[in-house]
């Protein structure tokens, strides 16, 4: 293959990466934006989504698309409920103190990860693609499912934006984000909002996992790498800025995909972090960040 088509292939792979990464980072950034806490267990909710997708699709025999659709519905809901439960059981009692919360979410990380090891086991398990069509792009064939992943992610990103910008619930979120005490004084049920946001952040990451798991396999340690990339994304994009998060996710996801194809995935992560160093040197609050955190 010539360099041109090869680069096209790498860019397409990069776009798939970027699509899923923007979902994961969006969940992280949403939680930080509204609640001012960093969820280190975020990657584990992603892993949970993947494992649940495998679990659900192993029940549904026959057409793999059925199992996939069911997983797309069930996995985010269960991941969201587990997140809301941990919020209710733990984070609420810490009064969302930034330091205590970050330590507690590390604890949640290990509990979810090790519980997955106990139940799901140490093996990586594949999930069948819901449809197996290869599009012939003249130089190479490319799975139509990967285009679907990109498409579905864009739809989800747009709907999160719509909810935030156009609905009553979005208004409550933005009010809480701006000034939680005043919001509470105006009768907004802050603790319910927090709980829902924490659940939604986990659910969005779980959707990303359900989308990616037919391409990648489900494994109990798969949460670490997306967490690292999502952190890189939110630092570059500016913590809490949704616009910056998506822009940075596309940048990092694309370059990660392309460098992974041409060189090695490890080198891609190292270079992405060097980019972070560079951003920190010129703009300590991230490219789109305004508020001091």
């Amino acid at each position: 293959m010539d360099l041109g088509p090869y680069l096209l292939f790498a860019s397409l792979e990069g776009l798939v990466h970027a699509a899923v990464l923007s979902l994961i980072a969006l969940g992280l950034s949403l939680v930080f934006g509204v609640m001012r806490i960093v969820n280190v267990a975020h990657g584990e909710f992603f892993m949970l989504g993947a494992i649940l997708a495998w679990w659900v699709s192993s029940f549904v025999l026959g057409n793999p698309a059925l199992g996939f659709l069911l997983a797309l519905l069930v996995a985010p809901i269960i991941a969201g409920i587990i997140a809301m439960f941990s919020d209710w059981l733990i984070l609420k009692h810490l009064k969302y103190d930034p330091e205590a919360t970050i330590i507690a979410t590390i604890g949640i990380l290990y509990i979810i990860q090790q519980a997955a090891l106990m139940t799901f086991g140490p093996d990586a398990r594949p999930v069948e693609q819901p449809f197996n069509v290869r599009l012939d792009l003249y130089w190479f064939g490319f799975s139509a499912y990967k285009f679907f992943v990109i498409f579905a992610s864009i739809i989800l990103l747009l709907s999160v934006w719509l909810v935030m910008a156009k609905t009553k619930f979005g208004l409550l979120l933005r009010a809480t984000q701006l000034d939680s005490e005043t919001a509470q004084a105006f009768g907004i049920p802050i603790s319910t909002v927090y709980s829902l946001v924490f659940g939604a952040g986990a659910a969005i990451a779980a959707v990303g996992a359900v989308l990616i798991v037919p391409i990648q396999q489900a494994h109990y340690l798969m949460g670490g790498e997306p967490l690292l990339l999502a952190f890189i994304v939110v630092i570059i994009g500016g913590l809490g800025s949704l616009r910056g998060t998506v822009a940075a996710a596309v940048l990092i996801g694309m370059s990660d995909g392309i460098i992974s194809v041409f060189f090695s995935p490890t080198l891609a992560k190292i270079l992405a972090t060097l980019l972070v160093v560079f951003v920190l040197l010129i703009r300590p609050n991230g490219l789109f960040g305004t508020a001091k955190v």
Partner: peptide, 28 residues
């Protein structure tokens, strides 16, 4: 010098990130 350009939670994230990359460099 690099990590202290950030404060609060960003400092925690940046230190976590740097150490992950240190780990990846050892593997690379």
């Amino acid at each position: 010098y690099l990590a202290l350009r950030t404060v609060g939670v960003s400092f925690m994230i940046v230190t976590l990130m740097f150490s992950q990359v240190g780990y990846l460099c050892i593997l690379y």
